[in-house]
Nucleic acid binder design. Sequence first.
DNA 1: GATTTATGTCATGAG
DNA 2: ATCTCATGACATAAA
Length: 661
Amino acid sequence: MKLLKPWGSAGGGLLHLALLLSSAGLREDRDLSLLLLLPPRPRLRHEPPVLGCPTRSACALSPFPAPGGWGRPDTVTPLEGLLLREVRALGVPFIPHTRVDAWLVHSVATGDADGTHELLGAAASSAVGDGSGQAAAGGGGDPRTAHSSPVAAVEEQKAAEEPTAQVRDADGRASQENEILRESEAVYHSIQHEEESALENPQQQNDGGESKRSDTPDWKAEKAVEPSKLDTHIFLCGGLQLLSSQPEYSLESISLEGIPPCPGSMNQSLNSSAHYNTIFNQVISHDVNLHEAMLLCPNNTLTDSVARTSHAQEPFLQLNSHINLEQALAAINLTGSLQPVDNRTRNLTNLDLLYDLDGNMFDEITLMSLATEVGFDPVEVSQLFEEPDCDSGPSSSHKSTSMIKSNSSHSTYNGALGSNSYLPSLCHYELEGAVGGYSPEPSKFCHMDHRNKCGFHEDLACQHIFHNHTYHLHPGEQEPTSEPRKSHTISRYLDDTERTLSRDEQRAKALHIPFSVDEIVHMPVDSLNNMLSRYNLTDLQVSLIRDIRRRGKNKVAAQNCRKRKLDIIVNLDDDVCNLQAKKEALKREQAQYYKAIDIMKQKLHDLYCDVLSRLRDDQGRPVNPSQYELQCSHDGTVLIVPKELVTSNHKKEARKGKRED
DNA sequence: GATTTATGTCATGAG
DNA sequence: ATCTCATGACATAAA
């Protein structure tokens, strides 16, 4: 089968997946999760260019797609560099084939059993204000608790429902949560300090940013990046849940029966739960990330497929994501539950197509989830990584710290993905007022309730998915009454409101400018200065605000100038028309005058002839009109004068007049 | 593919 | 000195 790659080589993976799901009997228009995997549509006219895809600069550092495709896979972004360092710090053998490899290896490695996973997961939840540490309530050594608050809530709910669920010691948990809180605060302050240092000495930041970050303890960097790890799982689980939402392909009836556990799996806790006969849907609802679930079956054909991959020689690289999806669909196929699928197509779906899945597709998926669900929204990342025409572009180190900082502040709704966040029609992103949502106290923006925003718990379309999207707030904290920030999901690519953001709005959003672009541009300078003084803004933010104001005013000025120019042109056209009409009228009038003059001349000539024909000279002969003319004197007498005499007199008078002059 | 049109942005000068 | 405005020039996307 020849597969087209309309969005560039890297984008072909999306088509692969589209065909994959299509062969499974799913439709793009019905399976909304598929929409999330579609590449951004090309820029339309009258639409400001996407920040992540600048036209004047390369997208090499951006993990987000340029109009022609995704960033070069051989380019390591700062984010990837951070991940790679983490992987190396964990002693994981690693060959960075693709970004998704790096990410998945990172995810696998950090999911290992040193308690880091749990700590980080709890830190993520604590960073968003879950002081009660409910996300960590699922268990001390269970890496599943490291994912996100909603999923952890599902876990907690199931633990409450199951009498055999392991009960944790409340006191120990409380102390552990306190420790987590302290450490997460330390992470935040460390990041803040790093950012301030970067602003104070950007040159040093550029020169020694690498070593500086390498000096940072691994646990800090890992904590900073950790929330993004939540979302790979949620993203994939959400997609599978949507699969399970298809009524004719209920995954509840799909089991992994007969699939033996993978020896040496990194997730011993999962394997030890002896869920080899786990109902697939249960696996999903239990927040088992895909690469954990898929490694349960080493001896079936899936393992062969693993062996056929180019990364087979690397034990950790075998965990790359396309294996996961292979195994997922192969597991589905084992049960034969997807019988309505056409056999020919289904065969392709199960294995053959999957072998064609290149890592780029999962590059996209992973980077999407990295970028959109972890707080690195594409705009932010692109802005922070590129900033092609920003006069005061941030240094790379500062960008990294900014992103990390945003991670901690956005991690609350990272887990809000589920499936509801995928639905652009349900969760319409409205961006009003301040573009950034930045606050000097970032945690204030971290608490949102998607139920209020989208009402997706009431939505019937989502009721068959039993995610618990309840978010844990501090007991004393109120749910935000103001416009909550939308979760960073891929649905933003599909959101009309989001699409219409201007570049400056995107920049302002990326830097969390607490004012709207409209305010920045149109506010009186005194008011703006007052506002700037009231907020503790960085130099970069102030510079961006100045630039936005300058550009905004200049844009309006240019529009006015062009309008004025057009008005001038139109007025000049009108003037030309009026003058031409006036000229024609004058010509007509002139013609009439000429005509009247001719008539007068003719009448005078006739009168001459008549008078002279009646005159006689001294000898009684008629006077020749060609030789004489009439002259009227001042006293009223009329003289008959020969023309020769008249001309000579005229010459004398002319000479006399010249002398006098 | 060349051309036209619309728009944003920058540089520059004037007030 | 700073800000605002006006405008030419340029770049780019879309038609």
